[in-house]
């Protein structure tokens, strides 16, 4: 199952979320948009590490992953990304 949604968290740029799940867990997460993340690889590592997370805990886990030390975001925030991913996870869980 896969869900795609666009969300614009308060104070942030538009996020294009793609979340894929299988048996109640995240299979793959993509957070796209015109934001900046430094270093870029750390952002992609956070996306990759979401895999395996229970959908019910996706938002909370994302908040931790995207607010890790060393990852600097401009035009997006860990809270905004977590909120958008949480909404996508709830949409998947409801299917």
């Amino acid at each position: 199952m896969i869900v795609r949604m666009d969300r614009k968290p308060a104070g942030g740029k538009l996020l294009r979320i793609e979340l894929e799940a299988e048996e109640g867990r995240v299979l793959r997460a993509r957070v796209r948009g015109d934001f900046f993340a430094h270093p870029e690889e750390l952002f992609e590592a956070a996306e990759a590490e979401l895999a395996g997370t229970e959908l019910a805990r996706a938002s909370e886990t994302a908040l931790g992953l995207f607010s890790r030390p060393g990852l600097v975001l401009y035009g997006a925030s860990a809270a905004g990304i977590a909120e958008a991913l949480g909404e996508a996870a709830r949409a998947l869980a409801a299917r």
């Binding site: 294009r16 948009g33 870029e40 952002f43």
Partner: peptide, 8 residues
Amino acid sequence: GYFQSLED
């Protein structure tokens, strides 16, 4: 940008 999808 790096985090955008060309197709999108």
